[in-house]
Design a protein around this nucleic acid. Structure first.
Lengths: 345, 345
DNA sequence: ATAGGTTCAGAAAACCTTTTCGGTGTGTTT
DNA sequence: AAACACACCGAAAAGGTTTTCTGAACCTAT
């Protein structure tokens, strides 16, 4: 029996396993085993240790543990642009998937700057993360971080330029098909496509899917061609005015974003066209605040970004366990029907 | 001279200081000093060590360093709701402020669940973070995490219920004043206030600021009272219709959110009221995608959330250095004038 | 040549936990 | 009573870095 009954350690220092062991009057080895549920410890002793740990509100030092185990139970989340609203759902999905599994997430925003990206990468590596997810804000391919990193990497939303890396993306071509198929199923035959900046791969992909589906159905692209512009309400309004002037018989418009769709709805109303009676409208992104509050409520394509983030986390888990993959994995999108197309089914 | 010229360590294991020291043919103590810029090292030796580190792409193990130093250079960012768009700018601001200063940020989303919050808190503490920022998604006070944590805590956006904690919030009362003062300065005298859910402190605060400013100016609240409802476009439209029916002489509307303002603009246009000619409109949140794309573009109040996040980071830094604070610190908002009020000065 | 100073390098402790292995004591079998 | 199995506990090493302190070598001044 240690006669030195020292007072509870001062609040200033957090309790360590040594403190617990001393209080429970066992060795630190026994204390460790007791707290980690390993056998070789008598039930009564274990209880005593647990009580001591409780009393000192002991919390094992993850640094020491990680140092020893070689795994830290943390991953990096490297985003190129937090502002862009597409990273956020992906980020939520990964955080969710990891958070549930006792992994902690380091968040780094490189702000689209590759210098900053390198800096964050170094910082993450020195913290000995177990893996890394790189989230882009556009669907255009981005430079690879390279093949010789000590940890597995998964690219989400924006794929890596290198086919050796594993990338998860939304199937934008399929999404374009989905939208047009839906409009055709609604009985429309004069379908136009108003979308954003043609420099975005997302715009090209969605347009390609729309074009292909129209061709297969033997239908023309109303307006003669895809109307590229910018991702804004203003462009949606302007393009719609042009379209109504040139192609008044249009009976459906597939929009490259919900913002564009809002402008389209606005212009259609101005011109006295009923939605969906005269013209059906499909948006893109399924951005609740825009789509669900539109008049009429907007049918839209949802990229399931949160799901994409979760899958990215799963793939990273697998890679950490040695089951690495490569190539681009394309995740399907989903059409969310609302009033702007379905009133006339 | 060590005759064992072992090959460069296998890629599988990341290089350690011992490897660097061996390659440079010095002790690890010397290697450490050389790399950390401490004196007591001859320039030539230092160069040799640095070259060796470079060659092995050595990156010091932050776990070991943190274990020794007692500080990890990491902080926790505990959000209650990533979905809510108010947390994001705050989060960006803190990430920015910390990222610049070699701190790494652990992101945790508790999803509004206090169980999950406790779990994340434990995890963060076991990782020995140096400090913690708690970001809420509503301005209503939230329960304190308690006074006896081993690290300093700063609450951002949503203040702590305890006055012993340090909280940073937006000055919503002041924002209400700002909006009404601006409308009065624009020559308006029949000012109404359409806002969201009265259960939100944000709604009450902004209304209080508006009321006080009207009273001081000797002006009535157009419509007789503040119109509380929900934070949606639909409510903005509905409230405006009611308002125009009851109080047709209204010449300005201060809205509790940009979403509401969009509905208000919509309804005003429907009723043939010119904005800002007949009625001036002020929104709230300065949510670019809504405010800048409205017709006309929407004057709005910006809560400077990113700045708030940066200040939170600074306060946390100070607290980590021992300069702890307490109480609620209120950050001013800012009016962003656009077409919906300014066309007529 | 000796005393004293200066400059640089290395040994060792410390940080905290986990795990392996050896040791002690108790109970069981012949 | 001796041998053995078993259950439990503790000593010690490992993981990578920083820091302090000691020690060695070299130089200068007397």
């Amino acid at each position: 029996m240690a006669e030195e009954s020292r007072p509870v350690p001062t609040k200033s220092r957090t309790a360590t396993l040594t403190d617990v062991a001393r209080l429970a009057e066992v060795s630190i080895a026994t204390a460790s085993k007791a707290l980690n549920g390993r056998d070789q410890v008598k039930a009564e002793t274990r209880a005593r240790v647990i009580a001591a740990a409780e009393k000192l509100s002991f919390s094992p030092n993850a640094l020491a543990r990680g140092l020893l185990a070689g795994r830290t139970g943390s991953v990096g989340l490297l985003t190129s642009d937090l502002e862009g609203r597409f990273s956020i759902p992906v980020l939520m999905g990964t955080e969710d998937a990891f958070g549930a599994g006792r992994m902690s997430v380091f968040l780094c925003d490189a702000r689209g700057d590759s210098i900053r990206e390198q800096h964050h990468l170094q910082s993450l590596l020195s913290r000995r993360i177990d893996g890394l997810i790189v989230v882009g804000s556009r669907t255009d391919p981005r430079p690879s971080l390279g093949r010789n990193l000590p940890v597995p990497v998964v690219y989400a939303y924006a794929p890596s330029e290198s086919p050796d890396d594993l990338s998860l993306v939304s199937d934008n071509v399929g999404a374009g098909r989905l939208a047009v198929e839906h409009l055709i199923a609604c009985g429309r035959t004069r379908i136009a496509h108003i979308t954003g900046d043609p420099a975005y791969k997302a715009a090209q992909d969605r347009a390609a899917g729309a074009r292909a589906t129209l061709e297969e159905a033997g239908l023309p692209m109303a307006g003669g061609q895809v109307l590229f512009g910018s991702w804004t309400e203003g462009w949606g309004r302007g393009a719609t005015r042009m379209l109504l002037a040139n192609t008044p018989e249009v009976d459906a418009i597939f929009c490259g974003s919900d913002q564009i769709a809002r402008g389209v709805l606005d212009a259609l109303r101005e011109h006295g066209r009923d939605v969906p009676g005269d013209v059906a409208v499909v948006g893109f992104d399924n951005w609740e605040v825009l789509a669900a509050n539109a008049r009429p409520q907007l049918t839209s394509i949802d990229m399931n970004l949160e799901h994409l983030g979760r899958v990215a986390a799963q793939r990273l888990f697998a890679a950490i366990d040695g089951k690495t993959g490569s190539g681009i994995e394309s995740m399907p999108c989903r059409l969310v029907p609302r009033e702007s197309t379905t009133a006339q089914g």
